[in-house]
């Protein structure tokens, strides 16, 4: 495990000593900032209107602002995560530094876990940025914090699964563009599998069950569903396991 931490530390240092982390943080900040501003704006006009008309609508920050925003965070993540994972292995292969890692006395799995962990931590930095926004809501409103925490656990798990898939795809090629584009396509597909529930057939249920979003809904509602937790954890394990296989087989083939 010490070795995985060494790799993780090195990855984090490369994220933060190159522009990568800062550019991602800035872009994320701009995009999420807009979402937050728009959502809050709508909410405020809605409250003002409801007060002026004298009718009592139920006003709930959690339901009307926080939940939609968190769902949007997941969607923005869908676009940002491939950008984090695309370089993970592709770059090391292109520049030849993979030769250093693989000929050092550490296991492939330690390399993979270290890199995945670093990507997770970078994503957590992005999430931290959204937390700061929500703290404002606590200052001016009185939202419930428990569902918020559970939703964040869901977001982290979901991102973990997506990052594991991206890590696997990055280990298949030395071209970052190919890795990024393929990851993006695969994640979108996994996302929209939820739409296959138009049919009542068994396969449609299976497809819909595999969708990434379907499993985040309960978390977003502030409910911990063990099934969903297991789904994401399984995806993480599968992704990292296949990455290990791919590292091995690439070595055999090339």
């Amino acid at each position: 495990m010490r070795n995985a931490l060494i790799i993780c530390q090195k990855e984090l240092r490369s994220y933060f000593s190159s522009p990568v982390a800062y550019v991602l943080l800035t872009l994320w900040g701009v995009v999420f900032g807009y979402f937050f501003w728009a959502a809050l704006g709508h909410f405020l006009t809605y409250t003002v209107e409801s007060q002026m008309s004298g009718r009592m609508y139920s006003i709930n920050l959690n339901e009307q602002v926080i939940r939609p925003l968190l769902q949007n965070v997941a969607v923005i993540g869908l676009f940002f995560l491939p950008m984090i994972t695309m370089r993970i292995f592709a770059e090391e292969k292109r520049t030849g530094t993979i030769e250093l890692l693989v000929t050092s006395p550490i296991r492939d799995l330690e390399i993979i876990i270290g890199k995945w962990l670093a990507a997770m931590l970078l994503y957590c930095c992005l999430l931290l940025f959204t937390v700061i926004h929500f703290l404002f809501l606590f200052k001016y409103g009185n939202p419930d914090w428990k569902p918020l925490v559970i939703a964040y656990v869901g977001l982290v798990l979901e991102a973990g699964a997506m990052l594991a898939i991206g890590t696997f795809i990055s280990s298949l090629t030395k071209n970052q563009i190919i890795a990024g584009a393929t990851t993006f396509a695969v994640l979108i597909l996994l996302w929209v599998l939820a739409w296959s529930d138009f049919s009542n057939a068994g396969w449609a249920h299976v497809l819909a069950y595999m969708s990434l979003v379907n499993h985040s809904e309960s978390f977003m509602r502030g409910v911990v569903d063990l099934k969903d937790g297991i789904y994401y954890t399984t995806l993480i394990f599968l992704g990292l396991f296949f990455t290990a296989r791919s590292m091995e087989s690439l070595r055999w083939r090339s």
Binding site: N3, I6, K10, R13, S17, T95, T97, I98, E99, L100
Partner: peptide, 23 residues
């Protein structure tokens, strides 16, 4: 290796420390 396996965004001492830890 034929092409030295260097990380362009690292400094020399930092890189040597990383490799030393790996070993």
């Amino acid at each position: 290796p034929e092409t030295p396996p260097l990380y362009p965004e690292m400094e020399t001492a930092e890189y040597l420390k990383f490799v030393g830890q790996l070993k």
